[in-house]
């Protein structure tokens, strides 16, 4: 067996998968693999929580299975469901066979007894429709399981996850307990719309991803928007970092920075100019109020950033 990758390896590996991260994130993945613990990733929207799962799946060479949470998500949609239609169809098609099987029985009790011997067939793995959680547990080569926006799901669902997160197993009444063949790497993300239960937090490593610092953001941009010029990249990151210090309804995240950079590259911009910013600000900011706030302070921002 080969040596498990160290956190430096993971950092480099993620970078090759297009995800530039800091030491803390790399260490998290290292510990998650070594301790076989799920990771709860929190942070403002758009800092790359979901992207982290995608990149680590690519790096570890595993399939990514994604479970998007929403209000009303339940076991049937997350874990498994019986293929009722198929069960019905089979009983219809096999009517003759069943008749044959039951032929020669004298009374009801005997017929029941015979039927009883085959009824497990209809509740076997064949008729089980695996949903994301079950898929992640049964995959042979292991997977990266992303449980996205767990805070959107109901509290009951959160409790339901506990068994799976602690022991990597699930209980299906008809079949018994299923153990994971290869333990999946589980990432849960939360946007903090509500407090998660302590029981859930206790079972996870907790990673908080804040907005990146200027250095990191520049590197992310260089990796994600290859065509961008050095000067524009520096200016753009400085501008975004400065905008984040303003009092805004929704701070621009990395995904917005990347979108903005792509827009500017499309427009063949060489450097930031106030007019250019005014025209394209709606890519960076998603609220009319915020756009107005920034526009009002555009001159000061520019003079502070680029002249001083």
């Amino acid at each position: 067996m080969t040596q498990p990758p160290s956190d430096a390896d993971i950092k480099a590996g993620l970078a090759s998968a297009g995800y530039i991260c800091n030491d803390r994130i790399a260490l998290t993945l290292f510990l998650a693999r070594a301790l076989e613990k799920p990771v709860l990733v929190e942070g403002p929207p758009g800092v790359g929580k979901t992207e982290l799962a995608r990149a680590s799946a690519q790096y570890f060479g595993r399939d990514l299975i994604r479970l998007q949470c929403y209000e009303g998500l339940d076991e049937a949609k997350a874990l498994y469901e019986w293929k009722y239609g198929k069960q019905l169809l089979y009983t219809q098609v096999l009517k003759d066979k069943l008749g044959e099987l039951l032929r020669g029985t004298d009374n009801l009790a005997e017929a029941m007894e015979r039927l009883y011997q085959v009824d497990d067939l209809f509740y076997s793995r064949r008729f089980l429709e695996p949903r994301p959680l079950l898929q992640a547990l049964t995959a042979e080569q292991g997977t990266v399981l992303l449980i996205d926006e767990i805070d959107k799901a109901d509290q009951e669902f959160e409790s339901f996850l506990l068994e799976m997160l602690a022991d990597y197993q699930v209980s299906i009444p008809e079949l018994g307990t299923l153990q994971a063949t290869t333990r999946p790497l589980v990432l849960l993300t939360s946007n903090n719309t509500r407090e998660l239960s302590d029981a859930l937090k206790r079972r996870c490593l907790h990673l908080f991803i804040p907005f990146p610092d200027a250095e990191l953001e520049r590197r992310i941009l260089a990796s994600r928007v290859p065509g961008i010029r050095e000067q524009l990249r520096r200016q753009l990151v400085a501008f975004v970092q400065e905008v984040r210090t303003l009092d805004l309804k929704k701070q621009p995240a990395i995904s917005e920075t990347i979108d903005w950079a792509r827009t500017l590259v499309l427009l063949h911009a060489e450097a930031l100019a106030p007019e250019l910013v005014t025209d394209t600000l709606n890519v960076l900011l998603k609220h009319e109020e915020d756009i107005r706030t920034v526009q009002d302070q555009l001159r000061q921002l520019f003079s502070r950033l680029f002249k001083g």
Partner: peptide, 21 residues
């Protein structure tokens, strides 16, 4: 796994396992 050697790694590792918000 991490050891006491590197202060920053130690801090991150303990932070990940102990602090939950």
């Amino acid at each position: 796994l991490v050891g006491y050697g590197d202060r920053r790694r130690l801090k991150s590792a303990l932070g990940l396992t102990l602090a939950k918000s």
